[in-house]
Protein backbone atom coordinates (compact mmCIF):
# COMPACT_ATOMS: atom_id res chain seq x y z
CA UNK A 1 0.00 0.00 0.00
CA UNK A 2 1.02 3.54 -0.61
CA UNK A 3 2.44 5.56 2.23
CA UNK A 4 -0.25 7.90 3.55
CA UNK A 5 2.10 10.83 3.12
CA UNK A 6 1.80 10.42 -0.65
CA UNK A 7 -1.93 10.03 -0.59
CA UNK A 8 -2.57 13.34 1.10
CA UNK A 9 -0.70 15.31 -1.52
CA UNK A 10 -2.24 13.61 -4.48
CA UNK A 11 -5.48 12.94 -6.28
CA UNK A 12 -5.30 9.22 -5.61
CA UNK A 13 -8.18 7.63 -3.76
CA UNK A 14 -7.02 4.86 -1.42
CA UNK A 15 -10.23 2.85 -1.72
CA UNK A 16 -10.06 2.88 -5.51
CA UNK A 17 -6.49 1.62 -5.43
CA UNK A 18 -7.42 -1.19 -3.06
CA UNK A 19 -10.29 -2.14 -5.37
CA UNK A 20 -8.09 -2.39 -8.47
CA UNK A 21 -5.28 -4.14 -6.62
CA UNK A 22 -7.72 -6.90 -5.74
CA UNK A 23 -8.56 -7.28 -9.43
CA UNK A 24 -5.01 -6.96 -10.70
CA UNK A 25 -4.50 -10.62 -11.56
CA UNK A 26 -7.47 -10.32 -13.90
CA UNK A 27 -6.03 -7.53 -16.08
CA UNK A 28 -4.92 -9.74 -18.95
CA UNK A 29 -7.82 -12.17 -18.89
CA UNK A 30 -9.46 -11.00 -22.08
CA UNK A 31 -12.69 -12.84 -21.35
CA UNK A 32 -12.93 -11.73 -17.72
CA UNK A 33 -13.47 -8.63 -15.64
CA UNK A 34 -11.66 -6.31 -18.04
CA UNK A 35 -12.99 -7.69 -21.34
CA UNK A 36 -14.74 -4.38 -22.02
CA UNK A 37 -11.45 -2.52 -21.70
CA UNK A 38 -9.67 -5.00 -23.97
CA UNK A 39 -12.28 -4.46 -26.62
CA UNK A 40 -12.21 -0.69 -26.15
CA UNK A 41 -8.44 -0.50 -26.53
CA UNK A 42 -8.28 -0.81 -30.34
CA UNK A 43 -10.85 1.98 -30.68
CA UNK A 44 -8.93 4.29 -28.32
CA UNK A 45 -5.75 3.55 -30.27
CA UNK A 46 -7.56 4.25 -33.53
CA UNK A 47 -8.57 7.67 -32.20
CA UNK A 48 -5.03 8.49 -31.02
CA UNK A 49 -3.60 7.36 -34.33
CA UNK A 50 -6.09 9.31 -36.44
CA UNK A 51 -5.81 12.46 -34.36
CA UNK A 52 -2.01 12.53 -34.54
CA UNK A 53 -2.12 11.92 -38.30
CA UNK A 54 -4.67 14.73 -38.64
CA UNK A 55 -2.44 17.21 -36.82
CA UNK A 56 0.57 16.04 -38.81
CA UNK A 57 -1.30 16.85 -42.02
CA UNK A 58 -2.17 20.28 -40.59
CA UNK A 59 1.42 21.11 -39.82
CA UNK A 60 3.57 19.35 -42.40
CA UNK A 61 3.62 19.22 -46.18
CA UNK A 62 1.43 16.38 -47.31
CA UNK A 63 4.20 14.33 -48.88
CA UNK A 64 6.08 14.21 -45.57
CA UNK A 65 3.25 12.46 -43.74
CA UNK A 66 3.20 8.69 -44.02
CA UNK A 67 -0.22 7.94 -42.61
CA UNK A 68 -0.06 4.22 -43.29
CA UNK A 69 3.12 3.39 -41.45
CA UNK A 70 2.86 1.13 -38.44
CA UNK A 71 5.25 2.91 -36.04
CA UNK A 72 3.39 6.18 -36.25
CA UNK A 73 4.42 7.21 -32.71
CA UNK A 74 8.16 6.73 -33.31
CA UNK A 75 10.21 9.39 -31.54
CA UNK A 76 7.45 10.57 -29.21
CA UNK A 77 7.59 10.51 -25.41
CA UNK A 78 4.26 9.29 -24.10
CA UNK A 79 3.06 9.10 -20.51
CA UNK A 80 0.19 6.74 -19.67
CA UNK A 81 -1.27 7.88 -16.36
CA UNK A 82 -3.09 5.10 -14.51
CA UNK A 83 -1.81 2.42 -16.84
CA UNK A 84 -3.34 -0.45 -14.85
CA UNK A 85 -2.22 -3.74 -16.38
CA UNK A 86 -0.64 -1.89 -19.30
CA UNK A 87 -3.30 -2.45 -21.96
CA UNK A 88 -2.80 0.94 -23.56
CA UNK A 89 0.91 1.28 -22.75
CA UNK A 90 1.82 -1.88 -24.66
CA UNK A 91 -0.10 -0.71 -27.72
CA UNK A 92 1.54 2.72 -27.60
CA UNK A 93 4.96 1.11 -27.35
CA UNK A 94 4.20 -1.18 -30.30
CA UNK A 95 3.52 1.88 -32.43
CA UNK A 96 7.02 3.11 -31.59
CA UNK A 97 6.50 5.57 -28.72
CA UNK A 98 8.94 5.80 -25.82
CA UNK A 99 6.25 4.93 -23.34
CA UNK A 100 6.16 5.40 -19.59
CA UNK A 101 3.27 3.82 -17.73
CA UNK A 102 2.57 4.97 -14.18
CA UNK A 103 0.05 3.62 -11.70
CA UNK A 104 -0.66 3.99 -8.01
CA UNK A 105 -1.19 0.30 -7.47
CA UNK A 106 1.98 -1.70 -7.08
CA UNK A 107 0.28 -4.99 -7.93
CA UNK A 108 -1.09 -3.54 -11.16
CA UNK A 109 2.41 -2.54 -12.14
CA UNK A 110 3.84 -5.94 -11.31
CA UNK A 111 1.26 -7.47 -13.63
CA UNK A 112 1.98 -4.91 -16.34
CA UNK A 113 5.71 -5.46 -16.06
CA UNK A 114 5.39 -9.22 -16.11
CA UNK A 115 3.08 -9.16 -19.11
CA UNK A 116 5.35 -6.85 -21.09
CA UNK A 117 8.28 -9.19 -20.41
CA UNK A 118 6.45 -11.93 -22.37
CA UNK A 119 6.81 -9.85 -25.54
CA UNK A 120 10.46 -9.55 -26.47
CA UNK A 121 9.77 -6.60 -28.76
CA UNK A 122 8.54 -4.37 -25.96
CA UNK A 123 11.71 -4.32 -23.86
CA UNK A 124 13.33 -1.35 -25.57
CA UNK A 125 10.78 1.42 -25.27
CA UNK A 126 8.35 0.60 -22.48
CA UNK A 127 8.96 1.38 -18.81
CA UNK A 128 6.66 1.29 -15.82
CA UNK A 129 6.92 3.39 -12.68
CA UNK A 130 5.09 3.17 -9.41
CA UNK A 131 4.40 6.86 -8.90
CA UNK A 132 1.48 9.25 -8.67
CA UNK A 133 1.35 11.70 -11.57
CA UNK A 134 1.96 14.64 -9.19
CA UNK A 135 5.37 13.28 -8.24
CA UNK A 136 6.58 13.67 -11.85
CA UNK A 137 6.04 17.42 -11.75
CA UNK A 138 9.21 17.95 -9.77
CA UNK A 139 11.25 16.35 -12.56
CA UNK A 140 12.14 18.33 -15.65
CA UNK A 141 10.91 15.66 -18.11
CA UNK A 142 7.85 16.65 -20.10
CA UNK A 143 5.90 14.55 -22.65
CA UNK A 144 4.65 14.87 -26.22
CA UNK A 145 1.51 12.95 -25.38
CA UNK A 146 -0.18 12.28 -22.05
CA UNK A 147 -2.90 9.62 -21.98
CA UNK A 148 -5.16 8.77 -19.12
CA UNK A 149 -7.81 6.28 -20.05
CA UNK A 150 -10.74 5.43 -17.81
CA UNK A 151 -8.97 7.07 -14.87
CA UNK A 152 -10.63 10.46 -14.42
CA UNK A 153 -13.77 8.92 -12.95
CA UNK A 154 -11.68 7.24 -10.24
CA UNK A 155 -9.60 10.20 -8.96
CA UNK A 156 -10.38 12.47 -6.04
CA UNK A 157 -9.76 16.01 -7.25
CA UNK A 158 -10.38 15.91 -10.99
CA UNK A 159 -9.43 19.55 -11.49
CA UNK A 160 -6.11 19.03 -9.80
CA UNK A 161 -5.58 15.84 -11.76
CA UNK A 162 -6.24 17.62 -15.07
CA UNK A 163 -3.89 20.40 -14.08
CA UNK A 164 -1.14 17.86 -13.35
CA UNK A 165 -1.64 16.14 -16.71
CA UNK A 166 -1.62 19.50 -18.48
CA UNK A 167 1.61 20.57 -16.80
CA UNK A 168 3.35 17.33 -17.75
CA UNK A 169 2.90 18.13 -21.45
CA UNK A 170 5.43 19.83 -23.69
CA UNK A 171 4.12 22.85 -25.61
CA UNK A 172 1.98 21.59 -28.55
CA UNK A 173 1.58 18.33 -26.66
CA UNK A 174 -1.56 16.19 -26.86
CA UNK A 175 -3.74 15.17 -23.95
CA UNK A 176 -6.03 12.16 -24.43
CA UNK A 177 -8.61 11.27 -21.79
CA UNK A 178 -11.39 8.75 -21.84
CA UNK A 179 -14.07 8.62 -19.19
CA UNK A 180 -17.82 8.44 -18.57
CA UNK A 181 -20.52 11.14 -18.67
CA UNK A 182 -22.74 11.76 -15.67
CA UNK A 183 -26.11 11.06 -17.28
CA UNK A 184 -29.10 8.82 -16.57
CA UNK A 185 -28.01 6.66 -19.51
CA UNK A 186 -24.51 6.18 -18.12
CA UNK A 187 -25.92 5.27 -14.70
CA UNK A 188 -28.18 2.71 -16.34
CA UNK A 189 -25.49 1.15 -18.54
CA UNK A 190 -22.27 1.34 -16.54
CA UNK A 191 -23.60 0.83 -13.03
CA UNK A 192 -27.09 -0.68 -13.13
CA UNK A 193 -26.59 -3.06 -16.06
CA UNK A 194 -22.82 -3.72 -16.10
CA UNK A 195 -22.29 -4.03 -12.34
CA UNK A 196 -25.64 -4.97 -10.78
CA UNK A 197 -27.62 -6.92 -13.39
CA UNK A 198 -25.19 -8.53 -15.84
CA UNK A 199 -22.28 -8.43 -13.37
CA UNK A 200 -19.78 -8.13 -16.19
CA UNK A 201 -17.89 -5.48 -14.24
CA UNK A 202 -17.04 -5.91 -10.53
CA UNK A 203 -19.54 -4.28 -8.20
CA UNK A 204 -18.17 -0.99 -6.85
CA UNK A 205 -15.92 -0.27 -9.83
CA UNK A 206 -17.76 2.94 -10.65
CA UNK A 207 -19.09 5.80 -8.53
CA UNK A 208 -21.76 7.79 -10.32
CA UNK A 209 -21.02 11.13 -8.63
CA UNK A 210 -17.43 11.01 -9.88
CA UNK A 211 -18.43 10.85 -13.53
CA UNK A 212 -17.53 13.92 -15.58
CA UNK A 213 -19.42 15.40 -18.51
CA UNK A 214 -17.69 16.49 -21.73
CA UNK A 215 -18.99 20.03 -21.19
CA UNK A 216 -17.19 20.16 -17.85
CA UNK A 217 -13.91 19.18 -19.48
CA UNK A 218 -14.42 21.79 -22.20
CA UNK A 219 -15.21 24.37 -19.55
CA UNK A 220 -12.09 23.48 -17.60
CA UNK A 221 -9.79 23.99 -20.58
CA UNK A 222 -11.58 27.22 -21.57
CA UNK A 223 -10.31 28.71 -18.33
CA UNK A 224 -7.01 26.87 -18.19
CA UNK A 225 -4.43 28.15 -17.51
CA UNK A 226 -6.42 30.41 -15.12
CA UNK A 227 -6.13 34.05 -16.09
CA UNK A 228 -6.46 35.07 -12.44
CA UNK A 229 -2.98 33.78 -11.71
CA UNK A 230 -0.59 36.68 -11.24
CA UNK A 231 1.34 37.63 -14.36
CA UNK A 232 -0.54 35.20 -16.60
CA UNK A 233 -0.76 36.39 -20.17
CA UNK A 234 -1.43 32.95 -21.64
CA UNK A 235 -4.40 32.10 -23.83
CA UNK A 236 -6.63 29.28 -22.60
CA UNK A 237 -6.28 25.88 -24.34
CA UNK A 238 -9.77 26.20 -25.74
CA UNK A 239 -10.43 29.74 -26.94
CA UNK A 240 -14.01 29.41 -28.15
CA UNK A 241 -16.90 27.03 -28.65
CA UNK A 242 -19.39 26.94 -31.49
CA UNK A 243 -22.74 25.53 -30.40
CA UNK A 244 -20.91 23.91 -27.51
CA UNK A 245 -18.38 22.25 -29.84
CA UNK A 246 -14.67 23.11 -29.77
CA UNK A 247 -12.75 23.77 -32.98
CA UNK A 248 -11.06 20.81 -34.59
CA UNK A 249 -7.53 22.06 -33.89
CA UNK A 250 -8.08 22.77 -30.19
CA UNK A 251 -10.09 19.89 -28.79
CA UNK A 252 -12.42 17.05 -29.70
CA UNK A 253 -15.04 14.92 -27.98
CA UNK A 254 -16.02 11.57 -29.51
CA UNK A 255 -18.54 9.11 -28.16
CA UNK A 256 -17.56 5.49 -27.59
CA UNK A 257 -20.53 3.22 -28.07
CA UNK A 258 -20.64 -0.45 -27.18
CA UNK A 259 -22.48 -2.64 -29.64
CA UNK A 260 -23.56 -5.73 -27.69
CA UNK A 261 -24.47 -7.62 -30.89
CA UNK A 262 -20.97 -7.58 -32.34
CA UNK A 263 -19.39 -7.33 -28.85
CA UNK A 264 -17.27 -4.39 -29.97
CA UNK A 265 -16.90 -0.66 -29.44
CA UNK A 266 -17.57 1.95 -32.08
CA UNK A 267 -15.94 5.37 -32.29
CA UNK A 268 -18.90 7.66 -32.98
CA UNK A 269 -18.44 10.37 -35.63
CA UNK A 270 -17.54 13.87 -34.50
CA UNK A 271 -20.59 15.76 -33.25
CA UNK A 272 -22.90 12.73 -33.40
CA UNK A 273 -25.99 13.53 -31.36
CA UNK A 274 -26.12 11.84 -27.97
CA UNK A 275 -23.02 9.76 -28.68
CA UNK A 276 -21.11 11.09 -25.66
CA UNK A 277 -23.94 10.41 -23.20
CA UNK A 278 -22.04 7.48 -21.73
CA UNK A 279 -18.44 6.57 -22.59
CA UNK A 280 -16.41 9.13 -24.49
CA UNK A 281 -12.87 10.03 -25.43
CA UNK A 282 -11.52 13.56 -25.20
CA UNK A 283 -8.55 15.21 -26.85
CA UNK A 284 -7.11 18.66 -26.17
CA UNK A 285 -3.91 20.25 -27.35
CA UNK A 286 -1.54 22.42 -25.37
CA UNK A 287 -0.86 25.63 -27.29
CA UNK A 288 2.54 26.02 -28.93
CA UNK A 289 5.18 28.18 -27.22
CA UNK A 290 4.72 31.22 -29.48
CA UNK A 291 0.96 31.11 -29.00
CA UNK A 292 1.44 30.97 -25.25
CA UNK A 293 3.66 34.00 -24.99
CA UNK A 294 1.54 36.19 -27.27
Amino acid sequence: MLPTRLLRSSTINANEIAHFSRLSAEWWNERGEFSFLHKMNPVRMQFIREKLIETAYDEQPEEKVNASKVRILEGLDILDVGCGGGLLSESLARLGARTTGIDASESNLAIAQHHASLDSRLSTNLTYKHAPAESLLSQSKRYDVVCSMEVLEHVDHPAMFLKTCAELLKPSGHLFLSTISRTPLSYFLTIFMAEKVLRQVADGTHTFSKYINPSELLEFFQTYPPSTAPGNTLLPWITRLYDGEPTRKEAEVRGLIYNPLSASWILAPRGAWGAAECNYIFWVRKPALDAMSS
Partner: peptide, 21 residues
Protein backbone atom coordinates in the same frame (compact mmCIF):
# COMPACT_ATOMS: atom_id res chain seq x y z
CA UNK B 1 -3.30 -5.68 -40.31
CA UNK B 2 -5.99 -3.79 -38.39
CA UNK B 3 -4.58 -5.02 -35.10
CA UNK B 4 -1.00 -4.12 -36.00
CA UNK B 5 -1.94 -0.59 -37.05
CA UNK B 6 -3.63 -0.06 -33.68
CA UNK B 7 -0.72 -1.42 -31.71
CA UNK B 8 -2.59 -4.58 -30.81
CA UNK B 9 -1.05 -7.92 -29.93
CA UNK B 10 -1.96 -10.05 -32.95
CA UNK B 11 -1.92 -13.21 -30.88
CA UNK B 12 -4.53 -11.90 -28.47
CA UNK B 13 -8.13 -13.04 -28.31
CA UNK B 14 -9.33 -9.47 -28.82
CA UNK B 15 -7.35 -9.08 -32.04
CA UNK B 16 -8.56 -12.40 -33.46
CA UNK B 17 -12.20 -12.18 -32.41
CA UNK B 18 -13.36 -10.29 -35.54
CA UNK B 19 -11.92 -13.11 -37.67
CA UNK B 20 -13.95 -15.83 -36.02
CA UNK B 21 -17.00 -13.56 -35.84
Amino acid sequence: QDAVLRGGDIGSYTALLPYTQ
